[in-house]
Each structure stands twice: as structure tokens, then as C-alpha cells.
Computed example of a mutant assay.
Amino acid sequence: MLNIADTLYAWCREGRPFALATVVQVSGSAPLPPGTALAVDADGTVVGSISGGCVEGAVYELCRQMLQDGGGPARARFGYSDDDAFAVGLTCGGEIDVLVQRVEPARLPHLAAALEEAVRGRPAAVAHVVDGPDELLGRTLTLLGDGSTYDGTMGGENEDRAVVARARALLRAGRTARIDVGGGPDTCRERMSVLVHTHAAPPRMLIFGAVDFAAALSQAGSFLGYRVTVCDARPVFATAARFPHADEVVVDWPHRYLAATETDARTAICVLTHDAKFDIPLLRLALGVPVGYVGAMGSRRTHDDRNQRLREAGVTTAQLARLNSPIGLDLGAHTPEETAISITAEIIAHSHRATGLPLSHGTGPIHHSGPTAPLPDEPSISFRMR
């Protein structure tokens, strides 16, 4: 739901009831991940998307029906085969499970608070019961800031404690994910599935080397939602005017800046200097911290020489295995702009544990959204309401 936080927050401030349809599980070639939402208000205004267009009309009608009838939360499954997709007016195969519920803002002030935090760019998480006992379905609990404070309830103290612990970890990682809790004597009495929507600070992209490639890469990184920093020890090159798309430009020795700045498991480090006096101390440090991606620019010869220098500097074989060098995917890139696409394509593939191969060379689902269930044997499109 945080994909449409700005509109939902405005509706909450106005006290305007709305129906919320949330993707809670996907399989096959469903195009949008769990947590994506569509909402409809009493006037019929719609915001968001849950399928990229395939089943929006049907979901819109379910939301309108929910607003008119005032029923409790309900699950709907949209399933179809790739072979029959066009026959029923759909454009892709797979399955999506959707939770549809009526939201009364006056009854959920904690939800409005979380939406406000997301709109203002501050960390927040919403834990949302998407499967389990009927009396708990659709309940929400919110975490703000670093997750140290929360509001709302899953039904009891044990339930809240179990969900908060898991949601807090997801908030720190900036991940939206579905978790299963309960069913044991020390947690919730009844088992339930909870979708944790998170809005964390943007991931960081640290670009070392104030070169033309860095200018293109900073623009591409900004487009992908990274908070981009360009760092170089040479003040004549590291200027804000040369890198208008970077959030900050820092004049410092790269290894010294990296040692003093904050990183996390989502941080991408791109070393573009291919100069040993900068690269070796920087990469020695970068390969020893738990960041998401480390890549270094240079030719094959530069790569071999750099690896030898890093080994001599004490970098282990396991650490060297984390280095993506030469940086980027083989796209035949030549220009800075093409190279930026090559690098960001590798970062995307790395973060999703994808192959980076052409989709035409593979089989199976094209969207990587966690474990997927097999498609049904028979073509169908059905609703499962409860």
C-alpha cells in the first residue's frame, strides 16, 4: 500500500473511507510484487495498480462492491494460464492473490501516521494480516522510525510481540515481505500470514571517481531511487556542477570517506577510478563490510593487476569473490551512458539474484518475487471470496 501512500494519506486526513486491494501473493508471471495496492474511494476515484492492467477492472468492481456492501475483508484469486491469457483479455500468465477491505480512517489513526511518515520520506512499516482467522484478517500494526515504537494490534500481546520482532528486521533491511507467525505455544495461538509493507530511507549508491562515467552513473542511480554520492580526492574534478544528479559530492580520499560513512546491505559501491593508489585501500575496506554490491571499473589487465595487489594487501579469496570486476554486464557499452546502463543492470540482477541473461534464453516466470507456485493445469479466471 505504500506505493500509493501520498493519496491514501490525503484520504485519511479528509476522513474519506476507501476500499483497499492489496497483492498478497504472486506466482508465475504476475507483473507486480506483493504489497502493491490499488484503492477506490466512495466517489469511484481509483489510484494505484495491482497487475499492470490485466485485472484492474475486476478488482475495481470488487472495491466498489466492498464500499457499497460494507462487508469484512475478503480474498480474491485471479488465475489463468499463459496459453489462454489473451482469450480472457489478459496480457500475462500467472496468479495473484488479492486482499480487498474497507478502510475507515477514523478507526485507524495509526495507519494515517505511518502513511504520513512514508510521504515525508521517513522510515515506516505497516504489518498487515493477509491470511488467518477471519476476525484478524485485514488488521494492521504500524512501526515508525527505527521500529522502536509501534501502534495498532494483531489481536493480543503475544501476537504483537511476534509480528513486531519480524517487522522491525524487515524495516531495517528496507524489504517488503510476507511472514508467517503463530501456531506455537510461545507466540500466537493461531497461525497467520502477515504482509509487512516497508518504507525505508533510499538505498545508497557510492560512486568513487569523479569521471564522465560517474556523471552518467549518478543520473542512472538517481533514476532507480538511490541516494547517490560521488566521492573523489581531487577538488578540481569533484564539483556539484559536474554531477547535478548526485545528492552529494564529497572531496575526500575514497577509503577515508567510506570508513566514516553509513552503509547497509542495500548499498552499492561503484569504483570507477581504476587507479591503484585509490582503488586498493578503498576496495580492501569495501570488500570487508556487509554492503550489497561492490564493482570496480577497468580492463581485464587492470582487473588481474588489481586482484594481485589486493591479495598482497591481505584480501582473502572469499572477499575477492564479492568483487564484480570488470564492472557491469556485457552489453557492448562504449559511451558513459551505455556504461551506466551496463553497471545498473548488473546491480539490479545482483540484488535480485538473477542471471543477467536475455529473457529469451530462459524458461519459467520472468518476475523474480520469491518462491513461486506452479500454474494451474486448466485455464481459469476465478474469484475465491470469504
Rank of each mutant, 00 (worst) to 15 (best):
residue 57 G to F: 05
residue 219 Q to S: 14
residue 189 R to I: 12
residue 251 V to Y: 02
residue 229 T to I: 01
residue 50 I to P: 04
residue 167 A to G: 03
residue 116 E to H: 13
residue 21 A to Q: 05
residue 290 P to R: 07
residue 83 D to Y: 07
residue 181 V to A: 01
residue 279 D to W: 08
residue 330 D to M: 05
residue 235 P to G: 03
residue 339 T to S: 13
residue 35 G to D: 02
residue 345 A to K: 06
residue 286 A to Y: 05
residue 261 T to R: 07
residue 8 L to Y: 08
residue 214 A to L: 06
residue 17 P to V: 08
residue 182 G to E: 05
residue 109 P to W: 06
residue 223 F to L: 14
residue 106 A to R: 12
residue 379 P to T: 12
residue 285 L to K: 14
residue 21 A to V: 09
residue 337 E to L: 07
residue 200 A to W: 00
residue 236 V to P: 00
residue 84 D to N: 13
residue 242 R to H: 10
residue 283 L to D: 04
residue 271 V to L: 14
residue 202 P to M: 00
residue 125 A to R: 03
residue 284 R to M: 06
residue 358 P to E: 07
residue 128 H to L: 01
residue 266 R to H: 02
residue 183 G to D: 10
residue 366 I to F: 11
residue 252 D to H: 08
residue 215 A to H: 03
residue 14 E to G: 13
residue 262 E to H: 11
residue 137 L to A: 11
residue 210 A to I: 04
residue 253 W to Y: 14
residue 376 P to V: 12
residue 99 L to M: 06
residue 266 R to V: 01
residue 210 A to K: 04
residue 108 L to H: 13
residue 26 V to A: 14
residue 263 T to M: 04
residue 292 G to W: 03
residue 195 L to V: 00
residue 84 D to P: 01
residue 161 R to C: 02
residue 134 D to L: 13
residue 71 G to K: 03
residue 120 R to N: 13
residue 83 D to P: 01
residue 248 E to D: 13
residue 323 L to T: 03
residue 22 T to M: 01
residue 383 F to V: 13
residue 85 A to D: 13
residue 244 P to Y: 01
residue 370 G to F: 08
residue 104 E to I: 09
residue 95 E to N: 13
residue 155 G to K: 12
residue 207 I to F: 02
residue 342 S to Q: 03
residue 238 A to Y: 00
residue 238 A to P: 00
residue 276 A to Q: 06
residue 162 A to G: 03
residue 6 D to N: 13
residue 83 D to L: 11
residue 299 S to G: 12
residue 188 C to Q: 10
residue 166 R to W: 01
residue 263 T to V: 14
residue 50 I to F: 08
residue 91 T to N: 15
residue 368 H to D: 10
residue 360 S to Q: 12
residue 94 G to I: 11
residue 191 R to W: 08
residue 351 S to I: 04
residue 294 V to Y: 04
residue 224 L to C: 13
residue 9 Y to V: 00
residue 44 G to M: 08
residue 113 A to D: 15
residue 70 G to M: 09
residue 192 M to Y: 02
residue 327 I to L: 06
residue 141 L to Y: 11
residue 201 A to Y: 01
residue 298 G to F: 05
residue 204 R to Q: 11
residue 48 G to V: 05
residue 220 A to W: 00
residue 148 S to T: 14
residue 4 I to G: 08
residue 225 G to R: 01
residue 85 A to I: 09
residue 283 L to V: 05
residue 137 L to Y: 07
residue 195 L to P: 06
residue 193 S to E: 14
residue 70 G to N: 06
residue 6 D to M: 07
residue 350 H to L: 01
residue 5 A to R: 05
residue 51 S to C: 06
residue 121 G to C: 10
residue 176 T to V: 05
residue 188 C to S: 15
residue 327 I to W: 03
residue 312 E to D: 15
residue 179 I to H: 00
residue 309 R to G: 01
residue 377 D to I: 09
